[in-house]
């Protein structure tokens, strides 16, 4: 068991504990902070597994995510405690999720083992071609960028569309009363 594996397991345990605390915490603010810790752990795992691009993105996105959530939680106190706990429903959910965990875990053991990806097997797929011809065909030494913006650029176009739609959507949702209120106020000013 190598050093990377040990660190990886420790960080995964940290992430799982953090998400459990976030799930069961009564205080929304501490739940938000715990999710921030989980995301930071993911950023370190990104660095450990040889993905510096992902680590940079994950850290910054995590900061923005926590800032947005804290802004929402802090300005709105609400005193919703889970007063009426429906134990039967919770037990059913836990049972179904347990079955899912067992079945999924059984499926995970049939995957290729950790540390020996498809890339290193007999049928390496497209990744080996990208790695072999990336610099000669595209000219970028960062293979992630050559996959993202050259080999799989259609995929990136679709995902950029998704981001665009989500941004425009939240604009539309938040902006509606802002506009009508401004219009109403200007009408009041005129009358």
């Amino acid at each position: 068991m190598g050093m990377v594996m040990l660190l990886l397991l420790a960080l995964l345990a940290f992430m799982i504990i953090g998400s459990l605390i976030a799930a069961e915490s009564e205080d929304l603010l501490s739940a938000v902070v715990c999710v921030g810790a989980v995301g930071s752990g993911l950023a370190i795992i990104d660095l450990l597994l040889g993905a510096p691009d992902l680590a940079i993105t994950q850290v910054v996105v995590e900061v923005l995510c926590v800032a947005i959530l804290i802004r929402v939680v802090l300005t709105r106190r609400d005193e919703t405690h889970e007063t009426h706990k429906d134990t039967f429903a919770i037990a059913t959910v836990l049972l179904v999720l347990g079955v899912l965990l067992v079945l999924g875990g059984w499926a995970m053991t049939t995957l290729h083992p950790f540390g020996q990806p498809l890339l290193a097997s007999d049928a390496p797929g497209v990744a080996a071609q990208y790695l072999a011809g990336g610099v000669a065909e595209v000219g970028a030494v960062n293979y992630v960028m050559s996959v993202l913006l050259d080999y799989r650029a259609y995929d990136t176009l679709g995902e950029a569309t998704v981001i665009f739609v989500s941004v425009i959507g939240s604009y539309a949702i938040l902006r509606r009363t802002g506009r009508s209120h401004r219009a109403a106020r200007s009408q009041e000013g005129e009358s």
Partner: peptide, 28 residues
């Protein structure tokens, strides 16, 4: 180098940066 990849990167950078900032501005 890499032809149009820096140009595409610049376009995506402007798009993502302005989009995320716009959402936060709308929330604020």
């Amino acid at each position: 180098s890499a032809g149009m990849i820096p140009l595409l990167n610049a376009a995506i950078g402007a798009k993502v940066g302005a989009g995320l900032f716009g959402v936060f501005l709308a929330l604020a």
